[in-house]
Simulated assay, not measured.
Amino acid sequence: MNAGEQLRAEKKTHRLIQLLIGLTGYGTALALLVGSGVGASSWNVLAEGLAHRSGLTFRMATNLIALVVLVFWIPLRELPGLGTVFNVVLVGTTADVAAHLIPAPATLVQQLTHYSLGLVLFAFFDALYLGARFGSGPRDGLMTGAIRVTDQPLWKVRTSIEVIVVAIGWVLGGTVGAGTLILALAAGPLVQAFLHHTTVPLRIDNPPASTAH
Rank of each mutant, 00 (worst) to 15 (best):
S41M: 03
L50S: 01
L30R: 00
F72D: 06
L67D: 11
F58V: 08
S54T: 13
L30T: 04
L70S: 01
A29W: 01
T62S: 15
W43E: 09
L30I: 15
A47I: 03
L23D: 08
G35S: 13
L32R: 02
I74V: 15
R77M: 09
E78A: 10
T24Y: 04
R53H: 11
L32W: 01
A47K: 01
R77W: 07
S36P: 14
G49V: 06
L76A: 08
G25S: 05
I74P: 01
S41D: 12
W73T: 06
F58N: 07
L76R: 03
L64S: 08
L50V: 10
N44R: 05
A29H: 00
V69H: 08
V71L: 15
G49S: 07
G55P: 11
L70E: 08
N63L: 15
L64F: 10
G22F: 04
E78Q: 14
E78T: 12
I74M: 09
A40E: 10
L64H: 02
A61H: 05
G55D: 14
L70I: 13
I65G: 05
G25M: 04
V38N: 04
L23A: 10
T28W: 05
V45F: 07
V45S: 00
E48Q: 14
G39T: 08
W73V: 07
R77H: 14
P75V: 10
G35C: 07
L76T: 08
H52F: 13
G27T: 04
A66I: 06
V34G: 06
N63E: 12
M60T: 15
T24D: 07
L32A: 08
G35V: 02
H52A: 14
L32F: 05
E78S: 06
L33E: 06
I21Y: 07
F72Y: 05
A31G: 04
L32M: 12
G35T: 04
L50N: 00
W43L: 11
Y26Q: 08
L33M: 15
G55Q: 12
V45C: 10
L46S: 05
S41E: 03
V68T: 14
V38C: 09
V69S: 11
V71W: 12
G37I: 02
A29I: 03
I74Y: 11
G22Y: 00
A51D: 03
H52S: 13
L67P: 09
L76V: 06
S42W: 06
H52E: 14
I74N: 03
A40Y: 12
S41L: 10
A40K: 14
M60L: 14
I65T: 12
N44H: 09
F72Q: 02
G22P: 03
L50A: 04
V68M: 11
G35Y: 00
V68E: 09
S41F: 00
I21S: 11
E48N: 06
W43S: 11
G49Q: 02
S41T: 15
V69E: 06
Y26N: 06
V45W: 03
S54L: 08
L56P: 09
N44T: 13
T28S: 12
G22Q: 00
G37H: 02
R77T: 10
S36N: 12
T24A: 04
L32I: 09
F72N: 07
V45R: 00
E48I: 03
E78K: 06
L67I: 15
V34K: 08
L23Q: 07
G49E: 04
A31C: 06
